[in-house]
């Protein structure tokens, strides 16, 4: 078993100051990690329709829906600033920002209720049922 599988500590010390971020899940791959002027080019192009949001992105029409993080849950963006040079050192990720909603974008057609991500957001509720201790009255 390689040492790269060592545990990773989540550093919560920045929890109070952590900013809220606006998240958009795009229907395409962007082969880049780093800064992007989202507020300059993307956000101003978003139109809120009666049912859905729409935006033109690189000449393509995207339809989006804003979804809320399930009740009792929080959205966290975690960042590993520096990977330890040696594999013996404990790895740490810090809380970079939080989010309460995110917007899922599809090509042409707005995400519907049976879209993967929207279904996945119901998983926490099901998981709670499976993993709750068996109730006293049934014991």
């Amino acid at each position: 078993m390689s040492e790269s599988s060592s545990p990773i500590r989540l550093d919560l010390s920045s929890l109070r100051e952590a900013p809220q971020d606006v998240l958009h899940l795009l229907p395409c791959e962007v082969e880049h990690n780093g800064s992007a002027p989202v507020a300059r080019y993307f956000t101003p192009a978003i139109r809120q329709g009666s049912q859905e949001k729409s935006v033109s992105f690189r000449g393509r029409s995207l339809k989006g829906q804003e979804v809320i993080v399930p009740q009792g849950y929080v959205g966290l963006v975690l960042k590993e600033d520096q990977r330890p040079c040696t594999e013996e050192e404990e790895r740490t990720v810090r809380l970079k920002s939080t989010f309460g909603t995110l917007t899922v974008w599809n090509l042409e057609r707005a995400p519907s209720a049976d879209d993967g991500l929207l279904l996945a957001l119901s998983w926490p509720g099901i998981a709670e049922a499976i993993h709750a201790p068996v109730s006293r009255k049934e014991q």
Binding site: P19, D21, V22, L23, H24, L25, L26, P27, C28, E29, V30, E31, H32, N33, G34, S35, A36, P37, V38, A39, F42, V77, S97
Partner: peptide, 11 residues
């Protein structure tokens, strides 16, 4: 799929 997170992009 990729993310826009604030003023950043995540592959």
């Amino acid at each position: 799929r990729s993310w826009f997170i604030g003023q950043t992009v995540q592959h």
